[in-house]
């Protein structure tokens, strides 16, 4: 279970990245967090991973406070980034072995690694190949295999389908649905409204660090989710343009 309670993050330069975000993602639920660039999606993931500390509010993973027990909470969470970067000189299996051991799975066999890699759709001949020869899609699959093999009850994904071809993206979504059926709480940050519509249990839209819309599956299937999201995106783009104009104007005033 992933929980954010009135979570606020203000950086040293006074930029407000997250403003009183409250989330509650239950076991067996896929939550899609949508938003434009700079909306605060990655900041939310960084806070769950304790890469940064919140200015105020609380973050809990399975009821454990992330700030107070960062190591313990990391045992309860797997993470897949936008660009899964692993050790290029290691094979897929060696990477899996390393991250599995880091995740506390020390007794796994080569057979276990092969099974997981097969499950994520990686081709057999790639298992013992060095990762530096892999395409982005193949690396994402290894990343997902790492998240699966850790078998943590919560999974954080930061735009995992970005740059993937439609087939690979679709396979990845199928895997997420399988993981949901095994009771995992999944938080997926993305721009991909169509994947959200097909797989999400709940959707949240973020704008300027605030959660401006929250819909359950029934609600967003009734509403026109694309229309709502595009409106927010357009607003965000206009806001960004205004900010850019201001920034450009500044030097000319001086």
């Amino acid at each position: 279970m992933l929980q954010a309670i009135e979570l606020t993050k203000r950086y040293e330069d006074e930029q407000l990245a997250l403003d009183a975000l409250s989330l509650d993602i239950k076991a067996g639920e896929i939550f899609f967090l949508l938003g434009a660039n700079g909306a605060g999606k990655t900041t939310t993931i960084n806070l769950f991973l304790n890469f940064i500390e919140p200015t105020s509010g609380k973050i809990l993973i399975d009821g454990i406070d992330v700030v107070q027990n960062p190591l313990e909470t990391k045992r309860h969470v797997s993470y897949v980034s936008e660009n899964v970067m692993l050790y290029g000189n290691f094979t897929a299996r060696q990477n899996l072995d390393f991250f599995a051991k880091l995740g506390g799975k020390t007794r796994l066999t080569r057979h276990d690694y092969y099974t997981v890699m097969r499950n994520v759709g990686l081709q057999e001949e790639a298992f013992e190949k060095k990762l530096k020869t892999f395409s982005k899609g193949m690396r994402q699959k290894v990343g997902l295999a790492i998240a699966i093999i850790k078998d943590a009850p919560n999974i954080l994904l930061d735009e995992p389908t970005s740059g993937l071809d439609p087939k690979s993206a679709s396979e990845l979504m199928q895997l997420l649905l399988q993981l949901r059926s095994r009771g995992k709480s999944i938080l997926m940050c993305t721009h991909d409204i169509f994947r959200a519509k097909s797989a999400a249990d709940r959707v949240g839209i973020m704008k300027e660090g605030r959660l401006v819309m929250l819909r359950t599956r029934e609600q967003f299937l009734q509403d026109d989710l694309e229309r709502i999201y595009l409106d927010y995106m357009q607003e965000a783009m206009m806001d960004a343009e205004t900010v850019n104009e201001r920034t450009v104007e500044k030097p000319s005033k001086q």
Binding site: L49, F51, L71, S81, M85, L102, G103, K150
Partner: peptide, 14 residues
């Protein structure tokens, strides 16, 4: 640079 450190530190390591 490669982002491996981010992946490593997302695990329970100090």
């Amino acid at each position: 640079e490669s982002g491996v450190l981010r992946g490593t530190l997302s695990n329970a390591v100090l």
